[in-house]
Nucleic acid binder design. Structure first.
Length: 617
RNA sequence: GCGGGAGUAGUUCAGUUGGUUAGAACGCCGCCCUGUCACGGCGGAGGUCGCGGGUUCAAGUCCCGUCUCUCGCGCCA
């Protein structure tokens, strides 16, 4: 007989009754009844109940065993009596009668419970991640992650892509985030950068003629953490030669759609997968106030600047902003006339908490002086405006507002007034807040779309100059001619994102493979040719020797898994992660280097004035 | 760097207006228990109330400072 196991803990069934079997695993639970003792033995595959029967000489010893110890038990598979069958367990019709028992590795008292979710905080869980990972939920999440990566690999290979590896010790890439640096021992004073993405390498592979590249690529960014952001994460990195933007979408849409369909019911609730028509960046910002809109939220935003600009509208608070070039955006909330006053008041104080002056609104009600809804006026219901700011707006303007917003009696519109950028952004926040307060966000669906036509440049308020919006290697729409003739801030790029349920899950572009266009593109952002040549000489040179037009994208694998697992943060779908401060309390990273290491690296540490207390191990 | 929330037993939490010996559940230890499957019963151990200072006759509770975790902003795909 095998020294550790003849079966796994999910395998034994009625058909095995009478056979000798050996199982190894962790003690999930132990129930000592005095004369008889039960062990629920666990491995990653499942649970099997094992029994020490009355009179057994093993009883005393096994009775001392503690939860989470690793043991090997041997004995005969027995059918349970009908009253003792456990229908909730796949192995519930049988049990293993222990006649031989070995304690392989006793467990000390565990810092939190494995068999149940005791709500232990993240610090303890991360400090003992190997224990946390034993829990069923984490086993499931990691299994999902592995399955997702396998599925993506399979789908990519089947779509004719080759899988590559690229260096992790490299030079700074143009993503715009802070790099993690690694000092070079052989080259005093010089540093490698960990890749923020394999951007340049994958483009160089296109220049090398490999045509279709993918990689499950580690990416490193030294920026502050968030629930959906990690210092190191993995991307499904993709690049293709001789393709249009549309072809990139058409290639990747079935991969991601297929993936989500494959795992749509992983959490137990069946989810629909809907791929919606692509959205321009401009429309996304206008209608949803975000470049990564959650399309499960049915609310839409409309521009109503024209209404508040009318001569007969008195509302000074908005008028002043409009005169300075600002805009008014309205969010329509259907059928809220029955909401209590507190609904509106709460939204108002929420807005103030976000730093806005408030969240003005108008409630449309059937007009008392005009015929009721549907009674004429070209199909538009006759309405009256109610609410704190309604008195500033005469009936004709109310009617126009109503028409613009497509509102019906009983609906309300909320207003945001500011300069265009901030107004769109805040309207987006309000749109989500109102949706959640109304409880009308759709559930049970993954809603995807591509957001396209991102601007090539934006105005950097702090530096007071034109800057690249995304990575500078994107091809401007219209090429050289557009760059030469158009206001930089109006130039669009062949740059796109893929969005799912309010998460940006991918970003990509058709790349600029022409040195002449690149030179011009950099010049518009104020970078002379020398800067371009110094920073990106490798790639720029490559483009001088016959570069195919190419483009691609990269999907955030951790985010895909997080969405599929319905987890609120990325740490729940990675086996080993750092905490919110990017420290690993288990491995004690980051930690100080020894004087010898620093000497080797020619580094002197110059600590800031407020020295952080080093963590006692 | 900034803002919100949190920090009390191994874990999750309660702790009234400042008032006597800081509680509960799970876990742990001991004893009992022949069929449980979140086994059950009895008993027990376990606390620098994050840390430092202050107010007070008296501080887990009030005030000031500080550290840590977490969510968000800035930053960043």
């Amino acid at each position: 007989m095998h020294s550790y196991r003849t079966h796994k803990c999910n395998e034994l069934r009625k058909s095995h009754v009478g056979q000798q079997a050996r199982l190894s695993g962790w003690i999930h639970r132990i129930r000592d009844h005095g004369g008889v003792l039960f062990i629920d033995l666990r491995d990653t595959y499942g649970l099997t109940q094992c029994v020490v029967e009355e009179g057994s000489s093993l009883l005393a010893a096994v009775g001392q065993w503690r939860n989470e110890s690793v043991v090997t038990v041997t004995g005969q598979v027995k059918a349970r009596t009908p009253e003792t069958v456990n229908a909730r367990m796949p192995t519930g019709e049988i049990e293993l009668e222990i006649t031989e028992a070995t304690l392989q590795s006793p467990a000390a008292v565990i810092p939190f419970q494995i068999a149940e979710d005791d709500g232990a905080g993240e610090d303890v869980r991360l400090r003992h991640r190997y224990l946390d990972l034993r829990r069923e939920k984490m086993q499931r999440n990691i299994r999902l992650r592995n399955a997702v990566i396998f599925s993506l690999r399979k789908r990519m290979w089947e779509s004719g892509f080759q899988e590559f590896q690229t260096p992790n010790l490299t030079a700074s890439s143009p993503e715009g985030a802070r790099d993690y640096l690694v000092p070079s021992r052989l080259h005093p004073g010089k540093f490698y950068a960990l890749p923020q993405s394999p951007q340049q390498f994958k483009q160089l592979l296109m220049v090398a003629g490999f045509d279709r590249y993918f990689q499950v690529a580690p990416c490193f960014r030294d920026e502050d953490g968030r629930a959906d952001r990690l210092a190191e994460h993995y991307q499904l990195d993709v690049e293709m030669s001789f393709v249009t933007e549309q072809e990139v979408h058409d290639t990747m849409t079935p991969v991601i759609k297929g993936l989500f369909e494959e795992f749509a019911d992983w959490t137990g609730t069946k989810h629909r997968v809907e791929w919606l028509p692509k959205l321009t960046y401009k429309d996304a910002m206008l209608k949803y106030g975000s470049d990564k809109p959650d399309l499960r939220n049915p609310l839409e935003i409309v521009d109503v600047t024209a209404v508040f600009a009318r001569d007969d509208v008195e509302f000074k608070a908005f008028k002043g902003t409009i005169q300075k070039g600002g805009v008014v955006r309205a969010i329509k909330a259907p059928k809220v006339s029955t909401q209590p006053r507190s609904f509106f008041d709460k939204l108002n104080s929420w807005a103030q908490g976000e730093g806005a002056p408030g969240l003005g609104y108008i409630l449309f009600e059937p007009s008392s002086s005009l015929p009721p809804a549907g009674g004429g006026q070209g199909g538009v219901a006759a309405v009256e405006g109610k609410g704190p700011i309604a008195k500033f707006i005469p009936p004709a303007a109310i009617a126009e507002l109503c028409k613009l917003a497509g509102a019906e009696p009983g609906d309300a519109v909320f207003f945001v007034c500011n300069m265009e950028g901030p107004a769109a952004k805040f309207a987006g926040l309000a749109r989500d807040k109102i949706c959640d307060d109304m409880g009308i966000r759709e559930t049970g669906v993954y809603k995807f779309c591509w957001v396209v036509d991102f601007p090539m440049y934006e105005f950097d308020e702090r530096a007071q100059k034109v800057e690249f919006s995304h990575n500078p290697f994107s091809m401007p729409q219209g090429g050289l001619e557009t760059l030469e003739k158009t206001d930089p801030l109006k130039i669009l790029a062949h740059q796109y994102d893929c969005v799912c349920n309010g998460f940006e899950i991918s970003s990509g572009a058709i790349r600029n493979h022409r040195p002449d266009i690149m030179e011009k593109a950099f010049a518009l952002a104020g970078y002379p040719k020398e800067v371009l040549e110094r920073k990106f000489s490798g790639m720029l040179n490559a483009f001088k020797f016959g570069a195919p037009p190419h483009g691609g994208c990269a999907f955030g694998i951790d985010r895909l898994v997080m969405i599929l697992a319905h987890e609120p943060n990325l740490r729940e779908v990675n086996a080993f992660v750092m905490n919110g401060q990017y420290e690993d309390p288990m491995m004690n990273a980051p930690s100080e280097a020894t004087p010898e290491q620093l000497k080797d690296l020619h580094i002197k540490v110059d600590l800031p004035r407020t020295v952080k207390k080093t963590e006692a191990a």
